[in-house]
Amino acid sequence: MSTPAPSPTGNATTRLLPFAAAALGVGFLSLMDAFMKEAALITGAYTATVLRSLVGASIIAPFWLWRKVGWPTREVFKLHLERGIISAFMALSFFFALTKLPLAEAIAISFIAPLIALYFARVLLGEEIQPKAILASILGFIGTLVIVGGRIGQGEFDSDTALGLASLIFSALLYAYNFIVIRRQSQRAGPVEIATFHSGIGGAILLLFAPFLGTIPESEALLPIAAAGALTVGGAMAIAWAYARAEAQALVPIEYSGFLWASLFGWAFFREAVTLPTIAGTALIVAGCWIATRK
């Protein structure tokens, strides 16, 4: 008796699952940004960032312990420590920027991180920079200027905006270097272990500054922070699941749906309007990223 041929509909559904998971993960992380902006405005970016890291670690750590994989080797732990330190200040500077800038604007400008990562990969990994990567970087830079120029043209460029942009660029630089560390990490450890040490070490590093920056969290901020911690873990795991089942080059464009989510959540949470320069600048940045990542 012959085996029935697999259903074309079933195969198509299976192929679409990684894309659906990636889109869900990006949506989770964009919603997390909205909750974190709300919490940071209430109780301060430092306190909100520390508590989010600790909540995330408390959620994911039991899964890592349950798997009983043992403590990472010294070399792997050094990678966890390096990324934990980087991500701690990356997150703090990004969430601080959210208190100064509209959500969609901040997400759009943060898209320059993959373009910066191309140059870090050249310096740190010895990868060749192709001409298309240079073109992509130019488009990304022009897109950022368009967004900033739109603010200047509308007379909304004040000291708070400048501080937010400086913090966001600093975060994007750390995020770009973070890509290099993630690449090394992913070859030595699984996603549950990476997520556990990422949140745990990041929170522990930031706690060192509690005597200088810490404040007693406002009760109204606790629910948004808890939601942000849970969404961080859910988003990271969904994206890790997707990238394990589909090529990165196919999934990368889904990352840019974060701008659409940010526009929606920025309006729903804070009644932030999306300006035409922001849309135009985002289109240039995304075009640059697409040119850089396509074969």
Score class of each variant (00 low, 15 high):
244 A>Q: 07
107 I>N: 10
204 A>F: 14
108 A>T: 01
56 G>D: 00
294 R>E: 12
280 A>K: 04
56 G>M: 02
145 L>V: 05
238 A>I: 01
267 W>S: 11
168 L>V: 08
48 A>E: 06
120 F>G: 09
51 L>G: 05
125 L>A: 14
92 L>E: 00
25 G>Y: 08
17 L>C: 12
137 S>P: 00
19 F>E: 01
90 M>C: 14
227 A>D: 04
260 L>N: 06
258 G>M: 12
155 G>A: 03
185 Q>D: 08
83 R>P: 08
71 W>H: 12
64 W>A: 12
123 V>S: 07
192 V>P: 01
188 R>G: 05
29 L>Y: 05
94 F>L: 12
285 I>R: 11
120 F>V: 02
269 F>I: 02
288 G>D: 04
64 W>I: 00
262 A>Y: 07
60 I>L: 01
180 I>R: 05
160 D>G: 11
151 R>A: 14
85 I>N: 09
95 F>Y: 15
273 A>S: 06
198 H>L: 15
255 E>M: 14
291 I>R: 09
121 A>G: 15
143 G>W: 15
183 R>D: 11
193 E>N: 09
92 L>T: 03
188 R>E: 13
128 E>H: 12
60 I>G: 05
294 R>G: 12
289 C>S: 11
158 D>F: 04
63 F>L: 12
113 A>N: 15
186 S>T: 12
95 F>P: 04
52 R>L: 03
116 I>C: 03
213 L>Y: 14
222 L>V: 03
144 T>R: 04
244 A>H: 03
197 F>E: 02
234 G>N: 03
241 W>L: 06
211 P>H: 10
151 R>F: 11
198 H>Y: 13
150 G>Y: 02
9 T>F: 13
181 V>D: 10
5 A>I: 12
31 L>A: 09
169 I>M: 06
108 A>H: 00
135 L>C: 02
139 L>C: 13
269 F>R: 03
160 D>H: 15
2 S>W: 06
183 R>Q: 13
194 I>G: 01
100 K>E: 13
34 A>Q: 01
234 G>H: 00
156 E>N: 14
241 W>A: 06
145 L>F: 06
146 V>M: 11
96 F>N: 05
15 R>K: 12
257 S>P: 04
111 F>L: 11
121 A>R: 08
67 R>P: 01
102 P>A: 03
280 A>I: 10
111 F>Y: 15
128 E>M: 10
75 E>L: 11
288 G>I: 05
106 A>I: 00
55 V>A: 00
225 I>M: 01
233 V>K: 01
142 I>T: 14
230 A>K: 03
48 A>P: 05
116 I>E: 03
175 Y>M: 15
277 P>A: 08
154 Q>E: 14
73 T>R: 13
108 A>E: 02
218 E>H: 09
30 S>K: 09
240 A>G: 07
96 F>V: 02
106 A>Q: 02
168 L>N: 07
263 S>N: 13
115 L>P: 03
106 A>P: 00
242 A>Q: 02
187 Q>D: 10
124 L>W: 13
72 P>I: 04
16 L>K: 07
75 E>C: 06
18 P>N: 08
190 G>H: 09
223 L>I: 13
189 A>C: 06
151 R>T: 14
162 A>V: 08
